[in-house]
Each structure stands twice: as C-alpha cells, then as structure tokens.
Amino acid sequence: MGAYFSEIFRGLQSLAIGLGITFKEFFKPVVTVPYPYETIKMSERFRGHIELIENEDGTPKCVACGMCQRACPSGCISLASKSVKYEVEVKGEMKTKKKKVLTTYDLNFTTCSLCGQCVESCNFDAITFSKEYNLASDRKEDFHFDLLNRLEERNS
C-alpha cells in the first residue's frame, strides 16, 4: 500500500519537474532565424557549388587541364578548350606560342555531391566554392551552370 502511494506521488513529482522545465523555456527568447526575412552568414569554408576564379584582366585562371573533371566522383564537370596562338616577347624576339583557352565550363549541379575534390585537385587555384545555398527551382535546367557565363556576368 505504501509503495502504491509513493509511486503515485513520485510520478506526480516527476511530471511537475518536467512541467517546470518547459515553463522556464516558455519565457526564454526564440532561437530560430525567420528564414526568408533573415539569413545567416555562411561560414568561410562553406562549400557551395564551384565558381571560376579570374585573373586580374578578367579572364579565367583555368588552363583547361581537366584535373577537376578527372577527380570528380560523379562526373558532373565538363569543360572544353581550344588552343590559341599568341605572341610573346622572349629576349627581344617575338615568338608564337600556343595555349589552351577555356571555351566552356559546365557544372551539372544536379549530380554534384559538393565533396570539393575538384577544388582540391586544381593545381592552378582556378576554382573556388561559392557561398550560394538557397538554390531552388522546379526545373532541372536551372542547375546546369555555365560557369564561364557566370564569371562574365560577375565581371560586367
């Protein structure tokens, strides 16, 4: 009989403790961010989708070596290049040299897993992560990024 009542009493006591805790929480300030009206700043190392980095003259740093393409586990990077002849002055002479120029750099963001292997594999520091995170669309095509285009848009 004593155990019966002590169990009831202890049970009620434990319930009261729980109620006390939620009551205290009731008066504490909210911790959420009202998302569309306020956003939080992404941390410095946040890995968004990739973005090309430009030289001082606005052209992409990328030399189209294709390392990122090979490193990508999901095969979402495709790039193309053409070789361009250009002249440089070496020891007072004009010499014609060839170099690869990036013509397209497509990122298929639908299959990208944001692992960052591409950025790591790049030996020329030509790609970086963007800080964009609220990307939403109901069309698949919106996530086929033409990074070269984006770079131009950023510069203009």
């Binding site: 190392r45 946040f46 897993s113 292997q117």
Partner: peptide, 15 residues
C-alpha cells in the same frame, strides 16, 4: 553542426 560547418565546409555529409 555550426562548429563542424565552420571547419569542414558542410553540415551533414562531410568530406
């Protein structure tokens, strides 16, 4: 998660 994001760059699927 905030802490890990600041160091790893992602919140759940770390690499």
């Amino acid at each position: 998660l905030d802490m890990l994001e600041a160091v790893t760059g992602s919140r759940l699927t770390y690499c």
